[in-house]
Every structure is written in structure tokens, then in C-alpha cells.
Amino acid sequence: MDSHAATVEAGLHHRDPELHNQFDTLEQQKDTAHLGMWVFLITEIMFFGGLFGAYLVYRNLYYPAFVAGSNSISIFWGTLNTAVLICSSLTMAMAVHSAAIGARKLLVGFLSLTLLLGLIFLAVKGKEYYDKWTEHHVPGANFHFDDPERPGEAPVPADVASQTSIYFSLYFAMTGMHALHMIIGVGILLALIWKASRGSFPPHHYTMVENFGLYWHFVDIIWIFLFPLLYLISRTPAMH
């Protein structure tokens, strides 16, 4: 590559302490880190892609069960969580911006805000899981799908009720994998906040913050797909 310095030796002697020895310039190092992150996110898309594929197949097979299952989860908490996550993406973007302009306190502040929103999301998710647990909607031995018995709606036939188990399996697998990503994100956020407060991200070297931002937005986008698929789409036909 043209960005390579002419000789290694020259580079090795006057190197920025942040520059790893396999790179010639900080520019190259930064580009490389970004590309790596994008490739990683592509693997993540494929990872969730498998689940989305399974979702598509079963939604086609058991549409009534998906409608019934989707009607049983709380649209209020889902919407709230969506809002929380979108806000956290905003604060994350602000954090990256703060790092770029070298505002350390702002950076720490926005990162902490992102952390807080992430935790709120997880708490709400936990509440939703708890509700499902008490309603016996967790697939497995104790699974039992009661007819929601809304006035004016036909009762859910028994075969459909048993098929909602598949819907809930996918619900828990998909939101569970997403929550796992959130938990990992929260862990990394803690580390970032600690490092940021020590001034580890000067304006010429905040790739880690940027890359984490990409990750956080990615997790956000996954939710943006999960929310309509699990909460909204199948709900409509039953809501006359």
C-alpha cells in the first residue's frame, strides 16, 4: 500500500506509542481497525440472520400461532424499550463526537448516559421475561398458552395454542441473543468509561470509542428489526 513508509527502520525509531508495530502510520492503523469492525459486524448479521431465517420459515408455517403469541406480549414495554435504545444510540453518537473534539468530560458523560439507557433496556427486558415466566409462556416443560380472552375475539384453537411454543422459542432466542449482545456492550462500556475518565482517548486516537459506537448502533439496529417482527407485524390482523 502506498501509505506504507519507505522503510521499517525509520518507522520503528520514531513511533507514536499508540502505533502498533505492524502498521506504518496511525492513519493505516485506524482504517484497519474500522475495516475489522465492519467485517465483524457482517459476521454478526449472519449470526442473527440464521435466527431471522428460522423466524421466516415458522411464521409462514404457523401464522395464526404467531399472531396469538405476538398478541400476548406487551406492546407498551416493547415500545418503551425501542425508545430507550434509540436514545442510547443518540447518546453514543454524541460520545463519539465528544471524543473527536477532545471533550473528555462530555465523553465520560455521554458514555455514562449510554450505559444508563442500556441498563434501563435490560431491566425492562428482564421485567418482560419475568412476566412471560409467570404466565408460563417460557417454552419447555411448564409451557402453557392460555387464551388471552380478549372480548370480541375468537378463542385460540388448541393446535394453534401449542404452536405458540415455537413463537416463544424464537422470541426468547432472538431477544435473548440480542440481550446477550447488550450485556457484552454494557461490559465494554464500563471499561470505556473508566479508560475515558483517565484520558485514554485523545482526539487522534479514539478508534476504540468509534468502533464501540458501531457495535452499539448495530445492536440497536437488530432491535429495530426485532421489535416489529416480534411485537408489531403479526399483531395487526387481530386488532380490528
Partner: peptide
């Protein structure tokens, strides 16, 4: 990654009988 998620589903199926 698709293998990863598939094997996770197999493990879940074995552990919790989720039915996928």
C-alpha cells in the same frame, strides 16, 4: 456464524425442549 447459531439452537433444544 450461521453454524454457531444453529448449534446454539440445538443446545437450547436439548436443554430446554424449545421445539424449534
Amino acid at each position: 456464524p450461521v453454524l454457531a447459531i444453529t448449534l446454539i439452537l440445538v443446545a437450547l433444544e436439548r436443554g430446554f425442549h424449545i421445539g424449534i
